[in-house]
């Protein structure tokens, strides 16, 4: 761990960036800056003069960073992508998690291994969180459709809530579909017949 390292995070997703910044600060890195705006990205990066740059792979500005490897008068310190031919597993893990790291050329790879690992795990955690949230939202909207379909069945067939649900479930099983799909069909049909 090297708290003096200057780290820049380029991520347009504010939540994920916040999770990553927090993680790095908790781990003891004090110089962590997030760049939100990608216009004039190179100038912003040069002003901060970082040792390590972390960028999400959904960001088209990743190609802008490719210019940093070029020999050019605007570059203060040469930057290289964090690649180590002997350690392809960590590159694959990073790409898989959706993040890429660039370091000042000459910086020992071991010094940033911890940063990259932390970054990968936070990115993966964020993806898991997003997926869970999506699942929860889907479940909630399915719940609502099923409730409406039950209401329609109870009214039109004059049956109890339990019977309405049992009917939905049986139909779903017979047709090899999800209960929510049958419920949606009922809601749609009821709307048409109104």
């Amino acid at each position: 761990m090297d708290p003096a390292l200057k780290i820049v995070i380029v991520d347009e997703n504010p939540v994920r960036a916040a999770i990553l910044v927090d993680g790095l600060r908790e781990a003891g890195y004090t110089h962590v800056t997030r760049i939100e705006e990608t216009t004039n990205l190179l100038a912003r990066i040069y002003n901060l003069d970082p040792d390590v740059i972390l960028i999400d792979l959904e960001n088209p500005s990743r190609d802008v960073l490719a210019q940093m490897f070029q020999v050019s008068r605007v570059v203060k310190r040469p930057i290289a992508m964090f690649v180590d031919q002997s350690d392809s597993a960590s590159i694959e893990a990073a790409v898989d998690a959706g993040v890429s790291a660039y370091i000042v050329d000459g910086l020992k790879k071991e010094r940033i291994k911890g940063i990259l690992d932390l970054c990968i795990s936070r990115f993966n955690a964020f993806t898991r969180l997003t997926n869970e949230l999506e699942r929860a939202q889907t479940a909630l909207s399915e719940r609502k459709v099923i409730d409406r379909a039950k209401g329609i069945l109870m009214k039109t067939k004059a049956i109890s809530e339990a019977d309405a649900y049992a009917l939905l479930r049986k139909t779903a099983m017979n047709e090899n579909k999800k209960i929510a799909e049958i419920a949606q069909a009922i809601v749609t049909a009821a709307g048409l017949l109104k």
Binding site: P60, L65, E92, V95, D96
Partner: peptide, 15 residues
């Protein structure tokens, strides 16, 4: 994909 860097890296590592 959104960047040439992504295309190159994913080709390089076999994704």
């Amino acid at each position: 994909e959104v960047s040439w860097s992504n295309v190159r890296d994913k080709l390089n590592i076999g994704l």
